[in-house]
Amino acid sequence: MLLKILIYARDHQPLVKKLFFAALGLLVVSNFFILPDHPHFGVEKIPGFWAVFGTAVGVLFVLFLKKVVFPLIGKSEDFYERD
């Protein structure tokens, strides 16, 4: 059962992609109607703030770590075994 769903999803990737982007769009639209009564941060009152926050933080997080930090601290797997 579960396996059938997984295989169906794998064979219909464009559909999965469309559903994902539709969900993202729906969430942003709903954000115009649902806003906090007592915002923790002032910017939360702007619709779409958390969407931008999630995307921007996620992208910058990966870029900084993989492009700046990883080249500095990434060593070969036997780094500590060598003398």
Partner: peptide, 15 residues
Amino acid sequence: TQSLLLLSFTGLAFY
């Protein structure tokens, strides 16, 4: 809504 927005768009960042 806040959690769904934050996490779904994190998904977009991964994509």
